[in-house]
Design a protein around this nucleic acid. Structure first.
Lengths: 212, 212
DNA sequence: TAGATTGTTAATCGATTAACAATC
DNA sequence: TAGATTGTTAATCGATTAACAATC
């Protein structure tokens, strides 16, 4: 399990592998070759074998890959065998939507607390989880071994709150605010910039006739 | 404005350029060099100039780029100067959150209709926009010149609905369902797979101490 | 065994970076 | 004018694809 460097492109493909393997597993497929998997994902067999070889040897010559085994190994590589404790910061529409989404829990991402600046909603609950004042973040993080903060607040506040979270020792931020956060090297930031996604869609729409 | 091929990496960076230029504009910066812009975005000046050169010549030797002009040109490249009419399919938590998000409107993405399978919520309104039965999608699309469908429904239904949308002549799908949609070449699909994003975060969390 | 398919090394392709003449 | 900085061509670096020996 010693790795040198894994490129971002590989990391971006890992969850897709996992999802496809999950589907295959569910439909009773026991084994699959890199050729076949490649066809289903629109990737070359070479690339798939190269990707996997970053992490170890999961296949068998003449046989291919055992779907269930490969699934579990990739889940491990992605760190999904461990539980992660989350807090949500910002109980607006998007925050509420994420808080209500139960499927994350099944992957080991457990929402422990919700925080908002609006005193009017403090004490309210989403899926049984109480909305608390921002001042309680620090102590709550300590008491509940929080790994990940989900940021669903306007960009104006996001930078300041991110700094605070870092000072409280947060390890990772799932950032839905439309800003680039400036955090220390060892703090993980995963951005979900919906507006950028929509712009890419717009670009492809404007150029779909040209490009194809 | 004739282009050969623009790589996905370039397209992914365009919205970031736009956002940064928007910020610069707002803070009164009138001009900027590729060197300076690169510093602020963590990119090399070379890359920035290469990226822009895919689309034309927007700078001036010895001066740099006019922020306002460059902003407008990139907005045009991204197709943001045109209005896009959207329908939202699936008025669950996430769908509601997106429907409530007004900032898309400012970029020319106008939500015209909302559709859901649940008869109990038909007739209800979100931001003044009525929730309608799925059967009305086809005629509504015709009547309102809809470009883009936002899919916020469970993956089981997403594939079927996507096929229908294609047959109704949809041009682009903003897909939040956790499936890969199989659509014709000239239909644009932009995926927002939140669970994959969270898995990448998890990967980086598991490997942050190793990699850094 | 023979056929299939891996893991890996080598070859190719594409994207990023460096360099520099052009010119504001 | 001299200094700055572009747009672009060339060099480098990295990622994808192809090839193949190893082996189940």
């Amino acid at each position: 399990m010693k790795r040198v460097k894994v490129s971002n492109n590989v990391i971006r493909r890992l969850p897709r592998y996992l999802r496809k393997l999950d589907e295959l597993k569910a439909s009773g497929v026991g084994r699959i070759s890199s050729f076949n998997l490649g066809q289903q994902l629109g990737l070359t067999p070479s690339q798939i074998r190269q990707d996997f070889s970053c992490f170890g040897e999961f296949g068998q010559q003449g046989y291919g890959y055992n779907v269930k085994y490969l699934y579990e190994e990739i889940a491990k590589i992605l760190g999904l065998h461990k539980q992660h404790n989350l807090i949500l910061i910002g109980a607006g529409h998007l925050g509420q939507a994420l808080a209500n989404y139960v499927n994350f829990e099944r992957r080991g991402f457990v929402l422990k607390g919700i925080f908002d600046i609006d005193t009017a909603i403090h004490g309210q609950k989403i899926r049984g989880i109480e909305i608390r004042p921002m001042e309680e973040i620090e102590s709550f993080m300590r008491d509940h071994a929080i790994d990940i903060a989900v940021l669903t607040i306007p960009k104006a506040e996001a930078v300041k709150i991110a700094d605070e979270l870092v000072s409280f020792g947060i390890k990772a931020i799932w950032n839905f605010a439309h800003v680039d956060l400036d955090v220390p090297e060892d703090t993980v930031v995963e951005n979900v910039h919906l507006s950028e996604s929509l712009m890419r869609l717009s670009y492809n729409l404007a150029n779909s006739s040209v490009t194809d």
